[in-house]
Design a protein around this nucleic acid. Sequence first.
DNA 1: GCGGACGTAGAGGGGTTTAG
DNA 2: CTAAACCCCTCTACGTCCGC
Length: 265
Amino acid sequence: METWSVDQVCSWLVEKNLGELVHRFQEEEVSGAALLALNDRMVQQLVKKIGHQAVLMDLIKKYKQKSQELKSPGETALITQAEDEESSSPASGGKQMPSFYPADNLDNGLIDHRVLKQRRNVRHILARNKALQWTKSYVLPEFPYDVKCMLAEQKCPDHSMRIRIIEFLQADMTKYLEGSLYPTTQQYNDVVNALLQAHPFLDEDGCGFFLWKRALKDRFKYVRRPIEDDEQVMRNKCKFGHRRGQTRKSLADIRFNEIKIVQIK
DNA sequence: GCGGACGTAGAGGGGTTTAG
DNA sequence: CTAAACCCCTCTACGTCCGC
């Protein structure tokens, strides 16, 4: 890893379901050596999402630990394999995500402004990575520390907490969708049921199921909104993306979009 | 069996609200 | 001010029912 180029680091990120970070890593020219030299503050500046910060720091930490233990060439493959096994999601029966959320990590008030701007480009490349097997008994992902505290205290989540819960659930579901951004109704149901079973107090007024499900659907919709390079998304936009008073996209437009998609590919 | 009416689910667009 | 959630509306697709 020490000798990796920026491109190799980016491939590794994609492999670790952190493809969303590729653009930032390329922008900041993070090579393998730079990756290993990152400290907490740098990771906070580089990576917006606390969940991604935690995963990234944990992967680096594990790499450093194992390279100390092994101290032999060609170890990377072994480590990658080990990490693959360890980082599999709870729903696939693997171990849960590392709970590395030190209190100082929450102090992200100085996050680089460019990172905030990046949120506009909400292409969840995660969706394109290796899909995990969806099982009926969906297991909730490991939430960040502050969310876990709120859940443990059974406090009614405020707006920002709701957003964070939804964001984590959406990111976790994406891993199972084989590149699609369209979960089935059953999948929405499974996730919301798992959430409400684990935390019944979230079922406000007995209509929590519908509220959480709608929030989750809206979140996926919001993720799809800016996407213009995905065949399935574009097809649905052509199909449904017009309202009374608006002209329907002509067949020519649809063809043009299809050609654009092929060119992008 | 066929075709129209109807209901429902699931898409999207876009306005409004909320929170940082 | 802006990003993101929330909410409402419209449209399409599909299944079911019913009359012919």
